[in-house]
Design a protein around this nucleic acid. Structure first.
Lengths: 305, 305
DNA sequence: CAGGGTTACGATATTCGTAATTATA
DNA sequence: TATAATTACGAATATCGTAACCCTG
């Protein structure tokens, strides 16, 4: 009979690299852990770890099933989570993963409103790359992710709610050489460094253009930093060009502190979306946060139209 | 702490409709089952079944999580299955689901070769509709399904290996009225009954044509039977027209016992495929059966080209 | 009162931690 | 000798089945 604990233990041992080290993760003594592992191996009839005096190393078979073990554990976790939701016990906490490119946009606009409305909620906002955020979502560390949809298109077992399409602007300093041209194309910008908050998603037309021009998988941008104030300073002191959500530097462009370049091609945009695990229900607080986002970005769209 | 047994028990109770009746499925006494359920409800903090004197009925919450429970149990089953594969303990048994339309084609050609090669293998071939087969595959009753891919296109968590595209023929008796026409179209056939082994898949062009003509979801064919000999007799004694894989009546057509009709539209075909659960490895015997199929249908294609 | 679920209780089985044991770098 | 896995053993815990009990159609 396979048991849940055995799966938890094998995952802990795999993660820790030794039975000794896994005792902390599993909150159990070494001897009990050893026995648990042995009974699992006995049940399966397959050895999962080679024992060495420096620790244990997983057998090839262990590597093939470890992900299945984790999925089973996650499934159990989801059941418990959904029960907690049903009892409304998770109202008071909210963990959100957020994409680098639109982090500031969401934090600066939504957070003040949310905190004003629900001051007692414990809120964690964690910024990261799509890979990091996806992993942590799958590890059930987040209630949901808010990010541009482009980089999440091929992930399984998620559901996506589109909030708003946010146009991306290309921004340079006022004295930039391309400003002297009548019409600017991508090719004119190629000699200069591209900077931005995050990697371009594969669906980005610019990514595909670079791929075609350089005949290789491009590793753009050359400076990647999610602090837009820092990026702005770089633009002001160099001829780098910056891709950023249009609202970020709206004021600077109106004030003519920075220049936005209009390219003669279709616009790029970030599909700002909520990304959730399909098997997990929203907690009441998540529901409120998301509807707040919907309300905010919807209202903003209306005032712009 | 959620346990595997609790999940098994709740699934058994849901299936049986009462705790009493579930004792057989769970191989446990009533009292133990009651306690197991109660401890699960206690762990989750949510009541899963309303107790009545005539049995128990699941609460709405129970219905929302019961599928997750089954998935967890299936996940565990897959781990065990994969371990068994690894130990090569499942060599001796093979359960195959097979689509109605191509059942004879596979059985008559592949089975003799397979049984000759592996006479000791216990082999079960179960014919069914796509719905039946899919359900039983997900219940882990089959090693895999062999069927036309069309009706399985929208199922999740399966992997598909295409074996061969098998053209479908339209067959009528030699004296059929449409034989007097120079060119035959779908419309000419509409007045007569369509018969065949299985429902047309949604991807079948004929299905879509009927849908357009009748302005309703068609329930074709009017006679559905997987015994092609019986269908042949119907064709011979009526003006019904038959859709069947071309190889089935190859001989009858060459012998001019039956007439094949060539329509002036693109051909229909069955994408003969192996359909498996994506999380389960092939057992050694499944591997051998499938490669036998690949070999057979590949060789056949070559001789035809 | 029959058919279901629940509770009581003693027996069994499992799992745990401490501590002794073994084996290598 | 220090580190890590295994084994031994008694204690604690969980689970089981039998049987008594409760309730309603």
């Amino acid at each position: 009979m396979l048991t849940v604990k055995q799966l938890q233990h094998v995952v802990a041992i795999k993660k820790a690299g030794s039975i000794q080290a896994a005792t902390e993760l599993a909150c159990i003594s070494q001897s009990a852990l050893t026995r648990s592992l042995m009974s699992l191996e006995d049940n399966l009839g397959v050895v999962l770890f080679e024992r060495h005096k420096t620790g244990v190393i997983p057998t090839p078979f262990c590597n093939t099933i470890i992900e299945q073990c984790q999925q089973v554990l996650h499934g159990l976790d989801d059941i418990k989570h959904n029960a907690d939701i049903y009892r409304k016990l998770e109202e008071g906490e909210l963990k959100i993963g957020i994409g680098r490119a639109i982090s500031g946009l969401v934090c600066q606009n939504i957070l003040p409103i949310f905190v004003a409305a629900y001051p007692k909620v414990k809120l964690s906002i964690i910024e990261g790359t799509p890979e990091e955020l996806t992993l942590r979502l799958q590890q059930r560390e987040f209630d949901f992710i808010i990010a541009g949809f482009g980089s999440y298109a091929n992930i399984e077992q998620i559901k996506v709610s589109r909030l708003k399409s946010i146009p991306l602007s290309i921004i340079v300093n006022n004295d930039h050489p391309v400003n002297k041209l009548e019409t600017v194309t991508w090719q004119d910008l190629l000699p200069y460094s591209l900077i931005g908050a995050t990697k371009l998603s594969l669906s980005n037309p610019l990514y595909q253009l670079f791929e075609k021009l350089t005949k290789a998988s491009p590793s753009l941008p050359s400076v990647m930093c999610s602090d837009y104030q820092a990026l702005k300073n770089i633009v002001l002191t160099s001829n780098a060009w910056l891709i950023a959500p249009a609202p970020i530097f709206e004021r600077e462009i109106v004030d003519k502190e920075l220049t936005e370049i209009n390219l003669s091609v279709k616009e790029m945009a970030i599909d700002l979306s909520v990304i959730e695990l399909s098997k997990r229900q929203r907690s009441p607080m998540a529901e409120k946060f998301i509807s707040l986002c919907e309300e905010y970005f919807c209202r903003e769209s209306e005032t712009r139209n």
